[in-house]
């Protein structure tokens, strides 16, 4: 008699929705790179490597590392467990410089309407109100990688302003996922392409620092089953995706950095 398949005990939160969304986008990507302070994208990359064989380059030096548990610090050398080779981050930067990195993940305190990122300063450089830690490799890499995908664990008008005070990096940022929605950069502007379960357009408008446009509004009504106001919804993770998430990230580091995570 087959053992009863245990029901996935995982509570689904927006962290799982975001991880699964990124992992699905990664399915057709060949090579993706993850830097420091990136637990959520690293978990998504772990999923995409296990499920679709995506090559996962890590700033930790790991190539396709398969740690027992995903670490909170994404420079953690446990990422090397099961790694088939070592490839340091300066080598990954070189690879990006010659066009070999398809997707790079970037996190930053601020992204603006045009997909420019600020990891440097609030206020002016000469008279800073808040000095951030710097953008890591992004200032160099955003113009070099095929695509940069961004994520944030909070979605506020302050973190998503119309214009950033300082452009640490700009370039090929094509995607941003937040706890409310997914954006894609279309015609030079981040537009909402998908709302997470239970999120309304009003909430996104209220919590974004620019006058947000919704990609679905650009479709001809009737040309598609979606109509104005009937936005695409980010899918809930499937049971299989939830099992994979728990498998690669049993400590749930994907949930770090969020405030007020609630079961969905």
């Amino acid at each position: 008699m087959a053992a009863t398949d245990p029901a996935p005990a995982t509570d689904v939160t927006v962290a799982e929705v975001m991880c699964a969304a990124i992992a699905r986008r990664l399915a057709s990507v060949e090579t993706a790179f993850q830097g420091f302070a990136s637990p959520l994208p690293t978990v998504a990359l772990r999923m995409a490597h296990e499920r679709d064989g995506v090559t996962h380059l890590s700033a930790s030096g790991a190539v396709n590392g398969r740690p027992e548990t995903a670490p909170l610090s994404t420079e953690d050398q446990r990422l090397l467990a099961g790694s088939t080779a070592q490839f340091t981050s300066p080598e990954a930067f070189d690879l990006a410089a010659r066009g070999g990195v398809d997707v790079m993940f970037v996190g930053s305190p601020q992204f603006d309407r045009r997909g420019r990122m600020n990891g440097t300063v609030v206020g002016s450089w000469d008279d800073p109100k808040v000095k951030f830690g710097g953008g890591g490799g992004s200032g160099s890499l955003l113009p070099l990688v095929e695509e940069a995908w961004a994520w944030r664990t909070e979605h506020t008008a302050r973190s998503l302003p119309e214009d950033v005070d300082f452009v640490t990096a700009e370039g090929n940022l094509t995607y941003l996922v937040t706890p409310l929605c997914e954006f894609e950069r279309l015609d030079g502007e981040l537009r909402v392409v998908s709302l997470h379960p239970g999120v309304s357009r009003t909430t996104v408008r209220e919590r974004t620092g620019w006058d947000v446009t919704f990609a679905d509004d650009r479709r001809t009504v009737g040309d598609d089953r979606r109509t104005v106001g009937d936005d695409r919804r980010t899918p809930r993770p499937t049971d299989e995706e939830l099992r994979l998430l728990e498998d690669v990230d049993p400590k749930r580091v994907r949930r770090s950095g969020f405030t007020d995570l609630e079961p969905l």
């Binding site: 410089a97 440097t120 450089w125 200032g139 160099s140 070099l144 452009v167 640490t168 990096a169």
Partner: peptide, 10 residues
């Protein structure tokens, strides 16, 4: 020489 940095205020 180094690749990248286009558009960066750095």
């Amino acid at each position: 020489p180094v690749a990248g940095l286009e558009g960066s205020d750095l």
